[in-house]
Design a binder for these strands. Structure first.
Lengths: 148, 148
DNA sequence: ATGGGTGCAAAATCTTTGCACTCAG
DNA sequence: CTGAGTGCAAAGATTTTGCACCCAT
């Protein structure tokens, strides 16, 4: 096991225990996959991948673990239309460029996002806590491809 | 029936027929409610309200009609976490301030949104088509209320 | 050793679909 | 008239839950 994975595992174990949750091997395997994978996987994708290394995990455990990861703030959830929920382990303020053709999601950080949220919140007396900024369209790769 | 509703009905009928869909009384009733209601109702809310005026409409018809409204671009869909899909009939570029306490959603238009999307799209060679910008937090009203 | 966690299966939601009947154009 | 639309119920899809057994602490 690489040095990097060891570090991530340590982080995960600390995060769980710190909130009073047990650091079981299932939870570690699930969390490791979610936090290391920056392709915004679906819950089902996580389940399938984790099962390769850990054939007995159940979908219920995956859902429960992801619930905890959201609660302790290690992942966010993207609710896309015409698609399933996808997980986002980039905790920085960013927007998601969602390709309508290939389904890829690319993060893009931009200081203006912060600015806009501050401004609108001040204007509306709104106390912001989280945000989701998704732009749907066609990615550079798919634009290169052919027709339509 | 008021003058205003007549106008909206005319718009709806034209929109449906223009795309080759029949303008049935059910579709008109559903569309009228969705387009006139700016509280971002859930599908179920639409169903309940339309049923008051039209007791025989089925949930399936409501879903199918909303599907068409999305297709012809008269409504957008907000996919919120920990909540059901909600409908948005404000077609202008705006962000949604979603209150985590009372569930209200307030629109806010801001020219910076356009700017940021243009900039990021240019940088990433991305062709944007739609976007969703939701900020979760506590609204002015709920902040005024009591504790926590 | 013990209370929380796991895995399974069943339930709960939300949304879509198949089909016979109906009605808008 | 006639094909598209409706309403119902059944099927799908995703997520949650109840419960007996297990294991991390």
């Amino acid at each position: 096991m690489s040095k990097l994975i060891q570090e991530i595992d340590t982080t995960i174990i600390r995060a769980f225990r710190g909130k009073g949750y047990k650091a079981t091997p299932q939870r570690i395997a699930i969390s490791r996959f979610v936090l290391c994978n920056h392709n915004h996987p679906t819950v089902h994708k996580v389940y399938c991948e984790v099962r390769k290394a850990y054939p007995t995990v159940s979908l219920a455990t995956v859902y429960k673990t992801i619930q905890i990861l959201k609660e302790i703030g290690l992942v966010h959830e993207l609710n896309l239309p015409r698609d399933q929920t996808r997980l986002d382990s980039n905790l920085n303020l960013h927007l998601n460029l969602v390709c309508l053709r290939c389904g890829s999601i690319k993060d893009h950080e931009d200081p203006m996002i912060e600015a806009i949220i501050s401004r609108v919140s001040a204007a509306e007396q709104f106390a912001p806590r989280e945000q989701r900024f998704d732009v749907y369209g066609i990615c550079a790769n798919c634009r290169g491809d052919v027709i339509l």
